[in-house]
Design a binder for these strands. Structure first.
Lengths: 126, 126
DNA sequence: GGTATACTTCAAGAAAATTTGAACTAAATG
DNA sequence: CATTTAGTTCAAATTTTCTTGAAGTATACC
């Protein structure tokens, strides 16, 4: 990834996706979905949370495209949440590129005396 | 990474690290630090933010161990922020393991009719 | 058709994060 | 030694997020 490819627009989107995940309950929900499809009631039982809260947190993950939802073909009252694999792949790619250790540069700050040459007259001699 | 290795303790730490990064301003600051060491005033100039806000956001990244700080050897008033490379490496490892696409399992939910066998008496014939 | 079920939406309250402005610290400068 | 400089800390105000409880929707069951 080039420097210009890490644009502020990408940074904003990455920040919003990370914010959707940056919550212990939502991260646990995501973890459960990684282990396979779950319905609202299963998530609620696993995390000891009421169904409306599950619904709320799932909508945050859904809004960021990270989670998909489907209704049961036999009984449409049941909803099944699952990981959006394309979004996960893109997140992994963007995250890996953004936080790649080899992007770290040995720049020196342009202000402060550190980068500046210390004048010889200021250097104590003998 | 095994399922048990992704424990709730790890999830909480990952959630806290992601939360520290899940802010557009802090992510931009982190991006600037990836390009090399910056002092408070450089970050403030680049992001049009007052020094106390830079200080505040940097302390959040520092508290999570993601950013290091050092004072100038010549003029100790200047502070230099940089990426903590060990923390970055660990974050990449944990994130990559947690969100690894191949962790997704084809589980069927244990409630709802989807997984259940549809009784023959309910299947319309001929 | 009335009731139960599974979930969502809404509104209000509680908690947390963010921003602002001022006061403070420590070090360098004249 | 007073002043300037670079940054931090503090307290209050604002904004956002999270939780709670109730109401609403749509579907299935009897």
């Amino acid at each position: 990834m080039t420097e210009t490819a890490v644009s502020s627009l990408n940074i904003d989107k990455l920040a919003r996706q990370l914010k959707a995940l940056a919550n212990p309950k939502r991260l646990q929900m995501f973890h459960l979905l990684m282990a396979g499809v779950h319905c609202n009631c299963e998530l609620g039982e696993a995390l000891a949370m009421p169904p409306n809260l599950i619904s709320h947190h799932m909508s945050i993950l859904r809004d960021m495209g990270l989670v998909d939802v489907a209704r049961d073909a036999v009984d449409a009252r049941w909803v099944y949440f699952s990981i959006n694999e394309a979004a996960l792949a893109e997140l992994n790619q963007v995250f890996g590129a953004f936080f790649a250790a080899d992007r770290i540069q040995p720049r020196r700050p342009s202000c402060g005396p550190q980068g500046a040459v210390v004048p010889m007259t200021d250097i104590a001699m003998g």
